[in-house]
Nucleic acid binder design. Sequence first.
DNA 1: TAAAATCCTACTAAAAAAATAGGAATTACG
DNA 2: CGTAATTCCTATTTTTTTAGTAGGATTTTA
Lengths: 149, 149
Amino acid sequence: MKFSTRSRYGLRAILDIAINGKDKPASINAIAERQDISEKYLEQLMPKLKRAGFIESVRGTYGGYVLAKSPEDISVGEVLRVLEGPLAPVRCIVEKEDKRCGRWNKCVTKFIWAEIKDKIEEAVDSITLKTLVEIYKKKDAEKGYMYYI
Amino acid sequence: MKFSTRSRYGLRAILDIAINGKDKPASINAIAERQDISEKYLEQLMPKLKRAGFIESVRGTYGGYVLAKSPEDISVGEVLRVLEGPLAPVRCIVEKEDKRCGRWNKCVTKFIWAEIKDKIEEAVDSITLKTLVEIYKKKDAEKGYMYYI
DNA sequence: TAAAATCCTACTAAAAAAATAGGAATTACG
DNA sequence: CGTAATTCCTATTTTTTTAGTAGGATTTTA
């Protein structure tokens, strides 16, 4: 019941872009260095975020990534779903009828799984990148040192 | 971000014991058959539930497992924690200070992880085996067929 | 034309999860 | 007493998933 590094890295990467990619695009190289993530691994996450419409890429020298929407229009939930798949604690509650297991109709535990899913979504869908950037800036000012992500 | 089969099987097993282990102990063999779980795999989960004080074992012929507490005193959350470990979506938020990563002090994403953890716990700690058994019985009566778990 | 970047996709390594295996100890019952 | 049914213990293997690495093609700026 853990998020993979894929999700953790990906979320930090897009937050990094939200913060550092405003004037000029943020390159994989720069993000990887700031976030201490393997460059090549990060490189594989970016297309997911791009295809989902969160970021745009700029190729060539001085290229990199910028947000494709404003931070308040990107929720943490959306990002995590793209990186991790549906935020359900078990597969069956998000699968189509024909792929459910034979005990579905008679299953009691499914009610718990569904409730957990709802709660998780409550948490992640109510917070956007904007909120996180604001926390970042506030802490930054308070403490007088660069805040990472 | 999925529960392992360990957790799913284990929860179903203890529910099975709550329902079927009232008159006589429920044996691994019988639970495995009802729940369609590998007997040998299940065998490895039971000691965890036993050590945690949820069930008691009866050895020998006609042996098996019975609940060690009443169902209303066993929450789903407790059971899942025993089987799965802390219900945190990332490790760092439940680790001791000295095991945290170097960016802890400056981390923004930790606030989300903590919130997700709280929400998950809200869901699982508020429901006990008693509730699930009641759902089971209600459905059972309604529909006129044995309900599994 | 050279350097810095994204893009694409295949491969490998490591870790975790799931399942299997086999025998020791305990107990009820004929 | 002996046998069958059971828990108990722990090691091994298999499978799946995750994480990381590699290398070259394409694009763009200066």
